[in-house]
């Protein structure tokens, strides 16, 4: 029982540490693309180890295993990359200097995000009609 308690406490502390480091990175890093790295670690490692601690607690000490934590973990692990990608995409498409600082792909096609935006601009379906 004492082993389980030590393990749970350690996992809680590790989770809190990673949440703190994620927010510290968000507050201190110089630009958005670098700031994106902080919260992703907070999500996966911080929340992940806290939920493992919680699962271990209800399984080993209360002896009533629960699977809610698995649901939260699964949901967060699925959505965190989508969020980060949406923010990065919005950043690249909104800021000219971000768009110009991307290196080339080294292939006949460019970056998918930029190509799609360019194709959208030339497409007749998204053209703004000029006058009546």
């Amino acid at each position: 029982m004492i082993v389980a308690e030590v393990a749970i406490s350690l996992l809680i502390l590790v989770g809190a540490f990673f949440l703190f480091v994620g927010s510290l990175g968000l507050a201190k890093l110089p630009d958005l693309m670098r700031r994106l790295h902080g919260p992703t670690k907070a999500t996966t490692l911080g929340i992940g180890s806290m939920l493992i601690a919680s699962m271990l607690y209800f399984w080993a000490i209360e002896e009533s295993p629960s699977i809610h934590e698995l649901l939260i973990t699964l949901f967060l692990f699925l959505t965190a990359p989508v969020t980060a990608q949406m923010i990065a995409k919005a950043h690249i498409l909104r800021e000219r200097h971000a768009r110009e600082s991307i290196p080339g792909t080294g292939r006949p096609v460019g970056w998918a995000t930029l190509d799609a935006a360019k194709a959208d601009e030339h497409s007749e379906h998204t053209q703004i009609p000029s006058g009546p």
């Binding site: 989770g15 809190a16 929340i47 939260i72």
Partner: peptide, 24 residues
């Protein structure tokens, strides 16, 4: 604006962590 959106997202993550800790 995107920095603020990212900060809101991180705030939600922190809140989830807080809720889990308080549940424990």
């Amino acid at each position: 604006v995107l920095d603020r959106i990212l900060a809101l997202d991180t705030l939600v993550i922190n809140t989830i962590g807080l809720i889990v800790v308080i549940g424990l």
